[in-house]
Design a protein around this nucleic acid. Structure first.
Lengths: 118, 118
DNA sequence: GTTGAATCTGACACCGATGTGAGATTTTAC
DNA sequence: GTAAAATCTCACATCGGTGTCAGATTCAAC
């Protein structure tokens, strides 16, 4: 599949897909003329990248962790190194903290909304 | 209190405090010489601003919503306009979505960590 | 008064993800 | 073969929050 189709199927802009590749989060074959050619699995991969980005992980960490993740067709290609595990644990803590913060903020907004409604 | 003390007490940089004021999220009196002078309530206010920023609200929205919030000493100074309520509701939806996304991401990270540990 | 610390304004820099535009090349459809 | 659509690379722009530096001014303490 070419980059345009991958963009359409994932809802991610062509520009972003190229960016993901530049940051080693996404790989592609190249056609004789240099055009990118993606495997079917790229769709899931891109969606996953978006999710991790939305969760605040940096491109580098995403590129590090992707090979350690269970693929669509089986087990992970690699196992996380101790260093990576440490990084991921820190990310998880940060995420937990973010979730708590978001919950508190939601309560605050709810209160303002309720005050205006009541 | 002066800006340096406010910075120390909130852990927010002097630069950011000035930025908050520029974006109308924070107000200050001025001394004869032009130095900022803050009331005691500014401490809570700054912490609240940080929380809202961390939750992804823009400076403009924060400035809009702050007057509608219950202050330390009583009820809100203003009531949210219908427009603002609409905005805040959208923010709440976005926050709910973010929380879900973060939970999913956390599960993914947990899986990778568990795989590496096991 | 003098001096050192604090504060002032204003400007420029950065990061990360994405937008955008130019100009060249490739692919696709007829 | 030719025209149109898609893709290529490269570079510069944007946004929000913050860092940082420079030069001027003010405050606090002695």
């Amino acid at each position: 599949m070419k980059i345009g189709e991958l963009s359409r199927r994932t809802g991610v802009s062509v520009r972003s897909l190229r960016y993901y590749e530049q940051k080693s989060m996404l790989v592609s074959e190249r056609t004789a003329g240099g055009h990118r050619e993606y495997m079917e699995a790229a769709v899931d991969r891109v969606i996953l990248i978006q999710q991790l980005l939305a969760a605040g992980l940096s491109g580098n960490k995403i590129a590090s962790v992707l090979p350690c993740m269970r693929d669509h067709d089986g087990g992970p290609a690699e196992t996380a190194t101790p260093w990576l595990v440490e990084q991921l644990t820190a990310e998880r803590d940060r995420i937990n903290h973010s979730i708590d913060d978001l919950r508190r903020t939601r309560e605050i907004l709810d209160e303002v909304i309720a005050t205006a409604a009541g």
